[in-house]
């Protein structure tokens, strides 16, 4: 593998791992705060799936890099600019509706991505995708069911769900951003070309929103930057909390 393609693969593994880690972390913030106990358990299950995925992916990223960094080195000792997660995943939980909107947007995208990755020529990516696609199918089902209930529930829930959708819409474009390095991986059959997902994503999300009697936002203005490590302010706070203990005792074993 050339130095360039190794770097590209490393970045991609980081991106997948960071998406899972940051979104899983956000969902874990719901623990003990859910709208009903059954939902606490559901959100934690999703968080656990994602944290599990992140461990596998960050370990793999460390392997590709070949400098001996572990999953924890990568999770706890990188700065916000070194994180590659999509902007959507780091957005704050907001209310339950906003959390559901984020999960719907992300899970539809993840379903597309994982279907492509299942065919990856990289055995680790393909193996990861085969496992994660089932987990994600449940996350998607959960998010879609809740979107229906909140959109077509009461006036208040409809208002909140619409607000959540509208507020997060501008962060969805970043999911489909590709870099030149990505295109190398695409041509090697290692990853799918996410820039081609957009139309199908919009169709699937619109179908759910429409069934939920919600309005699909019309704005075509999207935030971007995660591919270059330019994040929202929210990420540095999240990392400040997540990394605080590990960084206070560098080198300690836990």
């Amino acid at each position: 593998m050339s130095v360039n393609s190794q770097q590209a693969l490393f970045e991609y593994a980081l991106r997948l791992g960071d998406n899972a880690l940051i979104l899983g972390h956000r969902l874990s913030e719901w623990t003990a705060n859910g709208p009903i106990l059954e939902e606490d358990i559901a959100l934690t299950n999703i968080a656990l799936d994602l944290v599990g995925q992140s461990r596998m992916l960050l370990s793999y990223a460390g392997e590709i890099e070949g400098k001996g960094r572990t999953e924890d080195d990568l999770a706890y000792y990188r700065q916000s600019a070194e994180f590659r997660n999509a902007l959507l995943t780091e957005t704050d939980n907001g209310d339950f509706a906003q959390t559901i909107a984020r999960q719907l947007f992300y899970s539809v995208f993840a379903d597309q991505l994982l279907q492509g990755l299942q065919k990856s020529t990289d055995a680790t990516f393909a193996g990861y995708a085969a496992k994660a696609i089932k987990e994600n199918a449940y996350h998607l089902r959960h998010a879609a069911e809740w979107t229906l209930r909140l959109g077509d529930g009461t006036d208040e829930s409809k208002r909140r769900m619409q607000e959540g959708v509208d507020k997060l819409w501008m962060f969805t474009g970043d999911l489909f951003a590709t870099t030149e390095a990505d295109m190398q991986l695409v041509s090697a059959g290692i990853v799918p070309d996410v820039s081609t997902f957009r139309e199908a994503w919009l169709k699937r999300v619109s179908d759910v929103l429409t069934e939920a009697t919600l309005t699909v936002p019309e704005s075509n203005w999207f935030q971007s930057g995660s591919r270059n490590g330019i994040h929202t302010e929210a990420l540095s706070y999240l990392l400040g909390e997540m990394q605080s203990l590990a960084r206070a005792y560098p080198g300690a074993n836990w």
């Binding site: 705060n33 859910g34 709208p35 009903i36 939902e39 209310d95 339950f96 209930r149 909140l150 529930g153 009461t154 208040e156 829930s157 909140r160």
Partner: peptide, 10 residues
């Protein structure tokens, strides 16, 4: 904070 969610589902 969860009351509106439970009501919506009902």
């Amino acid at each position: 904070n969860g009351a509106w969610v439970r009501e919506a589902a009902n």
